[in-house]
Nucleic acid binder design. Structure first.
Lengths: 110, 110
DNA sequence: AAAACTAATCGTATATTTGCGATATACAAA
DNA sequence: TTTGTATATCGCAAATATACGATTAGTTTT
């Protein structure tokens, strides 16, 4: 997109909420997160079996979730076991709690 | 995008969480929501004054927030007063609470 | 060493998002 | 009625997202 206006510096909180929200903004990724929650962890193979999407597509969604921090992959040759990253998950939970609380009026956004 | 695979029917909850998350996935929209929270309501003019973005761009973000249901506009000639839609806001809050709770393993996604 | 399996990445196509300026629309004020 | 103010929408451009199949890379098994 055109970026003719000055860059806006948002607060860390705003950037983090936005990033987590984006990770959560696709039903497939919610499905993956639910599967990981259900089984505590799971292999990509299992996801590919369950979801009606190409392996490459699922891999892309996993990458996005990984980039957001919400999940982590553990190498378990020859497979990779994905789990929810509890620390980040709790952070996201806390951030959304603030967002939906009265304290939202106080948090720094820009 | 190519849609060669079958359409996936996600649950209402999944679709709603994803939609709310998408609305929250941009720092500008978080900023707008914070401003509305702070002042309970506010006119577009005020937003245009505060944010370093073109009026048309802000209007677009307002439209997205409106479409998500999180805000509503009240005509107040010649201006439009935007407010947070408390009902939908509470719904979003509840959905994210479930998402981050143990009950997430139980909610229907697909 | 060869074959099989797992997962990531590449290249490509299309859709959507984000931004802008310009224009349209609707109402209020002069 | 003309002018001004407020907001939405249009048309465009660039970036990002979403999907696929094909290929690559790394392990494991045979």
């Amino acid at each position: 997109m055109k970026r003719t206006t000055q860059h806006i510096d948002y607060s860390d909180d705003a950037v983090r909420i936005a990033r987590y929200a984006k990770a959560l903004s696709h039903p497939v990724r919610l499905t993956i997160l639910k599967l990981l929650s259900n089984q505590s962890c799971c292999f990509t193979t299992d996801l590919v079996d369950v979801l009606p999407l190409a392996q490459s597509t699922i891999s892309q969604h996993l990458k996005e979730l990984k980039d957001s921090g919400l999940i982590q992959g553990e190498i378990n040759p020859p497979k990779i076991k994905y789990c929810i990253n509890q620390e980040k998950w709790e952070e996201a939970k806390a951030l959304f709690e603030v967002l939906f609380s009265k304290d939202f009026t106080k948090i720094k956004i820009t």
